[in-house]
Design a binder for these strands. Sequence first.
DNA 1: CGCGCCTTCGCTCATGTGAGCAAAAAGCGC
DNA 2: GCGCTTTTTGCTCACATGAGCGAAGGCGCG
Lengths: 329, 329
Amino acid sequence: MAATDTAATNELLAVRAAELYYEENKTQDEIGAILRVTRWKVGRLLQQARDRGIIRIEIVHPRARRLALERDLTARFGLRDAIVVPGPADDRELQARVAEAAADFLVSVRPIPRLLGVSWGRTLHQVAESLPEGWSTGVNVVQINGGVSLSKRPGTAASTAVMIAQKAGGEATLLPTPAILERLETKRAIEGDRTVSGVIDRARGAAAYLYSAGVADTSSVHVDSGYLTPDDMRSLVEKGAVGDVIGRYITADGAIADTELDARTLGLGLDELRDAAMSILVIGGEAKHPIAHAIVRHGLCSVLVTDEHTARSLLDSAPDTTPSGEDPS
Amino acid sequence: MAATDTAATNELLAVRAAELYYEENKTQDEIGAILRVTRWKVGRLLQQARDRGIIRIEIVHPRARRLALERDLTARFGLRDAIVVPGPADDRELQARVAEAAADFLVSVRPIPRLLGVSWGRTLHQVAESLPEGWSTGVNVVQINGGVSLSKRPGTAASTAVMIAQKAGGEATLLPTPAILERLETKRAIEGDRTVSGVIDRARGAAAYLYSAGVADTSSVHVDSGYLTPDDMRSLVEKGAVGDVIGRYITADGAIADTELDARTLGLGLDELRDAAMSILVIGGEAKHPIAHAIVRHGLCSVLVTDEHTARSLLDSAPDTTPSGEDPS
DNA sequence: CGCGCCTTCGCTCATGTGAGCAAAAAGCGC
DNA sequence: GCGCTTTTTGCTCACATGAGCGAAGGCGCG
């Protein structure tokens, strides 16, 4: 009763208290009796144990979220909201979780957007599928970038928008044109078409945008669909492109990678996303970290739905040009 | 507000509640406001979440214990007490943890045993080292089985007992004889010696025994020390021996593996352990599961100090010959 | 040895939380 | 539809708990 005191005695006591409290469901009073300390001391020991990370509480569920990361993201990047899901190792699973989370978020958006601008792609399609039937009432949907598939799976772009609208009992306005035109003149001509310009005008009036992003490499849907050749893509990468947002390829600095190509790209511009009341980026997976960085760091989205690895990667990145937040705690 | 109800809605709500409660430290009242349910419902959701294992609380600390397993072990095998430590993958680390736990237990035994019978071996030595200086006052120690090392590291058996006694300010009574004699006559002769029989008599009067166990294979200390030849050991294994307790090799059925050999083994008998007020077995690691089973299932110890894998292995084993305890909860 | 500083302690009190219960709602067989 | 049972809900009340505070104790410096 003389020698072993002071030092780490408290830590051991804290461990015992934690075991009795969390594993044996004893009251702090009972624990006090067992460990021969007052119940207030037990409370303090438990506090210590929590602070020192001896007690680890984890929520194990596919639908779980990482609220702490969400908070950090919104603070750091001035987002309106952030949704972060735990990241399983399996990439397929991860994409599904992120899409599900995006669907959940969409359902809960208040005020309900009367008109929702959407892009297309695998991620967006999964979001559409994850939406419950009747997820809202009377939400109309408008496509914000071109997307007739030139080769395989025709109409997936359209079906995404239609599914989202149909499940909310609303109507979909499609933009049934190629995403990227081969010649500037063709693009201008299509843009001049009353129907097409009408859709784009309508898209500009959307209360919220929902979109994902693609990676700049030869496995991109744009190459797959024939909008870009593998050579085009290599050239883009050489110019610093990290990926595309609604069809427009940007560099890590958030700038258009190739202005000539961009001029031939049909649909909303990046500024419309930046200035929108709500632009929801749905993105997940290691491969998309660079493009996610570019988008988030340059304010192209106001809501981010992602996985925890991507979130951590974003938060770990150097504070960019803006030297504001200093406190590391 | 119509379609998505009933089914898994509660589970999702429970997850959200858990996140807000455990990760954001909100009160159940606040959570109720956020999730638009009453605070009692929040309480029930959290209860559900805990029951279904959505919330996982873990105590991460080298000195942590597994109280649930301890409870199960004492109930299942009628033990007086059980100490179970979390099992790291590394075997060295695991042995150290188990030894530490045994030392902790020894310090807290009440009433304090005036005389403690100890065996020897690597495990016991670690226990001795883990005991704090002055762990008790005036505890005397007596060796319960022979153990002069014939080859390497002479005196470790003695030093273990001495260290335990010295750290408690007590005296050690040694049994400075071989563990196993080559000829029965020699064993009888030594046993007949007043000094030796005096030590063994003293050992019989110990208030508690502290011992470990060895595995029956050619890497055993008994082979290493020259008490047994590799051939002896192979013969023992053929006879069903799974390991030794204070020098005596037993089978999975708890019986002496080789009575002739046993007769040449010096020290306390197994019945003394079985009938003792307190006999503390310290054992850990995968390799020792069989001998641990044999000892625990046949009542040779009343206190068990082990790792969680061994504990689980014991609990998973078929309920033996004794069809008593039926309730699985 | 005495003084002040800082930590730790035990306690009061306001608040948070779970057991238990009656009422309402939801199934369910007919 | 109509009683029946079973589940879910909102609530009262007693208990458990953490914030805050003054007292006690340890520690270093003069």
